[in-house]
């Protein structure tokens, strides 16, 4: 889940309009940018879609780290395509957020100065090539779990962005699993790397779904507005149930000694992640928080002259064209 702990905004709108709005949502109507919407709906969505977009953009960094060191030219081309997709996904989502009345620059600035967050997962390092496999398999796998139901979200532009993203995302997970298969069936050293990647990525992946529903105070409003479709625990359970057999197929061990199939509930019992670590990462103290934000800030600052230069050039061309007419 790329949007964690989205605080829903209180709304102080006309109760009659609010009720009519809820009727539309309950009837499965899509809300479009020019339609009336509660202020809380608009603000919560800006925060959620913005955080999702930032996650796609910052998410390019841990994988970009390995583009120049991919083991073959084919793997390199594939990884490049995947990272390019992440950029595309970020752009689809920024566009959706912009229809709610926030500008792209405002969103970018809020990421750069820390007012807006991105998913905790991207504050973990990618230490070996096997991490490219684990990220695709687990991180994109967890993201898909959340994004598939979001295709039915009530806000039209968000829903359409999610539909495009989901179409492309399954390539991401499969290429990750493909890397894992290769490594898990490779030399002893490769197998060790694959197991090590799973060991390090497992709990951070479980954190992606956010804290337990019992502690998520903001879920209820978002669920009734259909901007959050499932509970955090429900999705986490689904992810574990789907992923454990995939790990077994690879001959790898999920790093949880208490993991056990529970016949009665028809799912696995498993150990939850360390939530103190999760909150610490959100506060900026993860292994790579500073590096990630520094990289985004540098890219923004270094690109300033390009943005200004191209704008100046476009204006000059426009003026010349006008003069010629």
């Amino acid at each position: 889940m790329y949007a964690q702990m989205i605080k829903s905004e209180a709304t102080q709108d006309d109760p009659e309009k609010l009720a009519a709005f809820q009727v539309r949502i309950d009837a499965g109507d899509k809300i479009e940018p020019k339609d009336w919407m509660p202020e809380g709906y608009r603000k919560t969505l800006i925060r959620q879609i913005g955080q999702h977009a930032h996650s796609e953009i910052v998410g390019q960094l841990p994988e970009g780290n390995w583009i120049t060191r991919a083991p073959t030219l084919e793997r390199k081309a594939i990884l490049l395509a995947k990272v390019q997709d992440e950029a595309g996904h970020g752009l689809y989502l920024y566009c959706a957020a912009e229809t709610l009345g926030v500008t792209r620059d405002e969103l970018t600035e809020m990421l750069l100065d820390g007012r807006m967050k991105y998913s905790s997962i991207f504050n973990y390092p990618t230490l070996t090539w096997a991490d490219m496999g684990a990220v695709g398999w687990l991180v994109d796998g967890a993201a898909i779990m959340n994004q598939v139901p979001l295709q039915r979200t009530s806000f039209g532009p968000y829903s359409r962005a999610m539909i495009r993203i989901c179409k492309e995302e399954s390539f991401h997970q499969r290429q990750g699993y493909d890397i894992m298969m290769k490594m898990a069936n490779g030399t002893e050293a490769q197998k060790r790397m694959a197991q090590d990647a799973l060991n390090r990525m497992w709990f951070p992946s479980l954190m992606m779904f956010g804290p337990s529903d019992a502690e998520s105070v903001h879920s209820e409003q978002s669920m009734s507005w259909k901007i959050k479709m499932n509970g955090n625990d429900e999705l986490r359970q689904k992810f574990v149930d789907q992923t454990v057999p995939q790990a077994e197929f690879l001959g790898l061990t999920v790093p949880d000694p208490d993991l056990k199939w529970n016949e009665t509930k028809g799912g696995y019992d498993f150990t939850g992640p360390d939530w103190d670590e999760f909150f610490d990462v959100l506060r900026g103290n993860g292994p790579c928080n500073k590096e990630r934000l520094a990289a985004r800030n540098k890219a923004w600052d270094d690109g300033a002259w390009v943005r200004d230069g191209l704008m100046a050039h476009a204006e000059k061309k426009r003026a010349a064209k006008l003069a010629a007419e």
Binding site: L310, H313, A314, K317, R318
Partner: peptide, 11 residues
């Protein structure tokens, strides 16, 4: 299909 930002039509 969506929108994007660019300095001019070519871009």
């Amino acid at each position: 299909v969506g929108s994007l930002h660019a300095a001019d039509e070519e871009m």
